[in-house]
Amino acid sequence: MEGIGLSDDSARDDGTGADDAVLLFVGGPLDGRVEIRAARHGEPLPTVTHVHLHNGPKVVHRYDLQPLGEQAGVYHLRTSARKSARDESTAD
Rank of each mutant, 00 (worst) to 15 (best):
A18H: 08
D19S: 12
D19W: 03
D20V: 10
A21G: 01
V22P: 00
L23D: 03
L23C: 06
L24A: 09
F25H: 03
F25A: 01
V26G: 03
V26P: 01
G28M: 02
L30T: 04
D31G: 02
R33I: 13
I36W: 07
A38M: 07
A39N: 08
R40S: 13
R40I: 11
G42Y: 06
E43N: 10
P46F: 06
V48G: 01
V48F: 04
T49V: 14
V51D: 07
H52D: 11
L53I: 10
N55R: 14
G56R: 10
P57M: 09
P57R: 13
K58S: 11
H61A: 12
R62E: 07
D64K: 11
D64S: 14
L65P: 05
L65G: 05
Q66T: 09
P67N: 11
P67V: 12
P67E: 12
L68D: 11
Q71I: 04
Q71D: 08
A72E: 11
G73F: 10
G73Y: 12
V74M: 07
V74G: 05
L77V: 02
L77P: 02
T79D: 09
T79I: 07
S80C: 12
S80F: 01
A81G: 02
A85K: 15
A85D: 12
A85R: 15
R86Q: 15
R86W: 10
D87S: 14
E88N: 09
